[in-house]
Amino acid sequence: MMAPEIRHGALRTRVLHSGDCTVTRLTQQGSAHVELAQEQPGDGYIVMLKLRPPHSFELFVGGERHGHARNAPGQSGSVCLVPRDAGVRMVLEAPFDMVQFDFPQRALEQWAAAHGLPAHGPLRPPPPGTCDPAIAALGNALLPALDHPARVSPLFVAHATQALTAHLLHAFGGHAPSHVPGRLAPWQEQRAKERLGAHRDGPVSIAAVAAECRLSPGHFATAFKRSTGCSPTAWLASQRIDSSRALLRRGELSLAEIAAATGFSDQAHFTRAFTRVTGMPPGAWRRQQLVREPIYR
């Protein structure tokens, strides 16, 4: 997270990055006409919050004028929501103070998937000049981070931008949760199994897998067990046992070699885990398979 300050003449710009989201504060004192152009590549949305509305403004989206007011500064807290690739241009009369939020589409999709929301269509922009107390409150809460980033917790900033993401989807997307609270969302369960399965033959960090699912280790372990019926380590152990069964059937490797190939610390560890799952030691299990499936030469 960083908040550089950039000055273009009298225009003061402070930028804050939190994950995929960007927050920018634009301030200009005095009396002057300022033209601001904003167009970002890729899908997503830009939300503009007027802390101190300009004396007059014109808003153009894709070359067409979508808002115009002169000698009517409007109400503090009014917002504007536009697609980030639409080609936004504003002509403002200073003084003004605004906060701009930039949300790429992937940030909205990831948050929605993490909370069991279906894929959303385009957000519905509110009419120009709409006041949104939630966006205003979150924007004002981030002002200390923009002005003094070293004094504010990055976790607080992340929670604020996530709360704004939730509000945008709820207020302008109209989605409702579809998964059981306390369990992993479908994308989280799939990602967790992919990450765990990729470490069948070696050590794995449960904390790293939890981070991939955007959860704390404790929350992840609880949600994984509720979703799959077993803990992450037990699930991984069962996958390693499945891999060892395939190697045992082939009959080419020793038990020690199979233990090493499937991520167990040694042969004794492998034997204990295998016996716990199958009810018999791996050597006995292999002999039983050879009897059932004789090799003809």
Rank of each mutant, 00 (worst) to 15 (best):
G182M: 07
P144S: 09
H199T: 12
I258R: 00
S265Q: 12
F224D: 01
P149W: 10
F156V: 12
R14W: 09
V277G: 05
A3M: 03
W285A: 05
V99L: 03
G74Q: 03
T27H: 09
G77S: 07
P133H: 13
A134I: 14
S31D: 15
L168M: 01
A10S: 11
Q190V: 10
I241P: 11
P217S: 05
V88M: 04
S243N: 13
A210L: 05
A256Y: 04
P118C: 07
D20C: 13
P133T: 13
A145I: 06
V152Y: 03
L108E: 00
V15A: 09
H148P: 14
V82Q: 00
R272G: 04
Q288D: 15
S78T: 04
Q190E: 10
E257C: 06
F60T: 06
S205D: 10
D43E: 14
H170M: 10
C80S: 05
A210Y: 02
P144M: 12
D102P: 10
L253T: 01
E293F: 10
E189I: 07
G62D: 07
G63T: 06
T233W: 15
H148D: 15
L247T: 04
R214S: 11
A259C: 03
G197Q: 05
L36K: 15
P41Y: 15
W235S: 13
L255C: 04
M48H: 03
G63S: 06
Y45T: 06
D147L: 15
A69Q: 08
E252F: 02
F220T: 01
R287C: 04
V157I: 03
L26H: 04
A260L: 03
A37F: 13
R7C: 04
L142N: 06
M280S: 14
H179M: 09
S153Q: 13
G202V: 04
P144N: 11
R250P: 01
G251C: 01
A176G: 11
H170G: 13
L117D: 01
D266W: 09
S56L: 09
F60G: 02
A141Y: 11
P144R: 13
Q75M: 14
D147G: 13
S244C: 09
A192P: 03
A141C: 15
A32L: 13
G263M: 01
L142I: 11
C230F: 14
P181G: 04
R191Q: 04
R124Q: 10
L253W: 03
Q105W: 07
V209G: 03
G67R: 03
